[in-house]
């Protein structure tokens, strides 16, 4: 019984963990910092370095105007750039109809993987995008 409870609590503790594929350039350091943050939260990250990163983003369907350095794919949804983990989990818990993913465009200095460790995230928006090419404001830091 005790081992069953332990097994259940282990499952409960990892229920939020996601299997993430990240497409990035081998020269990108801030992508690696973002990945470290996601791994530290218990997520499993597989990294890919496509020869043509922009071509890979085209194939995945990341809108040009929302692009950053890395693209993460989780459960078929796209997560572009330095998105805080909490926004990704909130999205995955209840993905809006027609949603394709989230993006933090560009390279905001105070976003996860960019901000000095321990400092509050600020000065950027989390944008939702859908299969119809519509954008929406999901969160603001």
């Amino acid at each position: 019984m005790r081992s069953l409870i332990l097994a259940l609590s282990f499952l409960a503790g990892t229920v939020a963990a996601e299997s993430i594929t990240v497409y990035k350039s081998s020269t990108c350091g801030c992508c690696a910092e973002w990945i470290k943050i996601m791994e530290s939260k218990g997520h499993d990250v597989e990294v890919k370095h496509p020869f043509n990163l922009q071509g890979a983003k085209d194939d995945l369907g990341v809108p040009r105007q929302l692009r950053s350095c890395h693209t993460a794919v989780i459960n078929g949804y796209l997560f572009e750039g330095h998105i805080p983990e909490q926004d990704i989990l909130r999205f995955l818990a209840n993905p809006p109809a027609d949603a394709k993913g989230l993006a933090v465009p560009g390279m905001p200095g105070m976003s996860p993987g960019m901000a000095p460790q321990g400092q509050a995230y600020s000065g950027f928006r989390v944008i939702g995008f859908d299969v119809n090419g519509k954008f929406s404001l999901v969160n603001q830091y």
Partner: peptide
Amino acid sequence: GYGCGVCHGPVANGGGQA
């Protein structure tokens, strides 16, 4: 693979990026 513009803006103008 991402271009300088991601961090420095489309024409090196900054564009609010890091």
